[in-house]
Design a protein around this nucleic acid. Structure first.
Lengths: 179, 179
DNA sequence: TAAGTATATGTGTATTGACACATATAGGCA
DNA sequence: TGCCTATATGTGTCAATACACATATACTTA
């Protein structure tokens, strides 16, 4: 899998151009999957060849024309079939944890600084999730189409909270030493 | 980065052959970084060319000879320099969360099954972390060289607990609907 | 006027990673 | 005897990913 599927998921929201998708990947879905624009443009072509999307060129004066992609019935079917396949849990795959395994062979001062920076980064990310939840989901029950997005946010919060707790404990453990 | 650095980290533990490393990547460090054996063998050659490891062939009768790799001073230096570079937080990158974004276009029954399976998988992983902690780190203060490994385990527990909480809430949210 | 930023689409290439295939031997089991 | 598993090292190849480069225009700011 998976970039192709992630794109199909995005296009259930609304028809989008490659540029739109690239921006979308930098925000909402980008919390759970990443892609650069060359990747997206190439993948869109493949999806078109498979008949999962159709493109429509929007003529624009001055700026380059937008090529807007739209899901086909075959694309929706592919998405449905993909959603039935089992998913393996993603592994953590984090540099910082790898470094920790060789704690006696690395620069401990740098390590403390990195954990401090991480703590700040995770707090900021958590604040961003809270902000999104407050502006989008604070008005009673979410609409059924938004439920998944809210659940995604909640996982993000769970994840960031876990890291924040860990960073605080880690710093407490590492502070005592002179270096 | 990073497979090369992960291998250097492993070799701080003890000299290892490619086969040893592949097994090591399936257990301890494998919680935070993954690698297949062809990848490891190729990377070891590159590390040798850079002078970060030296190899020593252990003659064995019958079985193929083991080529055991050992860190050099240059390798230790490279590890130290790597440990000073800032690390970006890893993103979550999880299929399940991507699917959730298109919740109205996927198979909801399959989704519930997948979350149920995930809950079980995360509980099992958590139990494994607890087991490792109990057998390796239950005897008072950990040795300095083991501190990082203990901290890694703790992050793993934080992570699995977050997922477990989320799965339980998610199932509660999804159950009510007939389908 | 020059520089930077946003819009919009691509190519070219290198690195990484996944996975099948290949080889060789010893030991256990049916 | 045949098959599977464990030990041990590789090659060959394709897909996925990252990143630099290329192009074209409009608008804003110094």
């Amino acid at each position: 899998m998976a970039l192709s599927d992630a794109i199909l998921v995005c296009l259930t929201e609304r028809p989008m151009s490659g540029y739109d998708l690239a921006k979308y990947f930098d925000t909402s879905i980008g919390f759970f999957w990443h892609a650069t624009h060359p990747q997206i443009y190439r993948e869109l072509k493949k999806l078109g060849q498979r008949g999962y999307v159709v493109s429509d060129e929007e003529i624009q004066s001055g700026k380059p024309n937008r090529i807007v992609y739209c899901l086909t019935d075959a694309g929706r079917q592919a998405l449905l079939e993909w959603s039935r396949k089992p998913v393996a849990p993603a592994l953590i795959k984090d540099d910082l944890l790898v470094r920790l395994q060789a704690i006696e062979h690395i620069d401990k001062r740098a390590l403390r600084q990195q954990i401090t920076a991480r703590l700040a980064a995770h707090r900021e990310q958590l604040a961003q999730y809270h902000h999104i939840r407050d502006v989008r989901f604070s008005h009673g029950e979410p609409e059924p189409s938004d439920l998944g997005k809210l659940m995604g946010l909640e996982l993000g919060m769970e994840y960031e909270n876990g890291w924040i707790n860990w960073c605080k404990n880690a710093l407490a453990r590492l502070e005592p030493d002179g270096d």
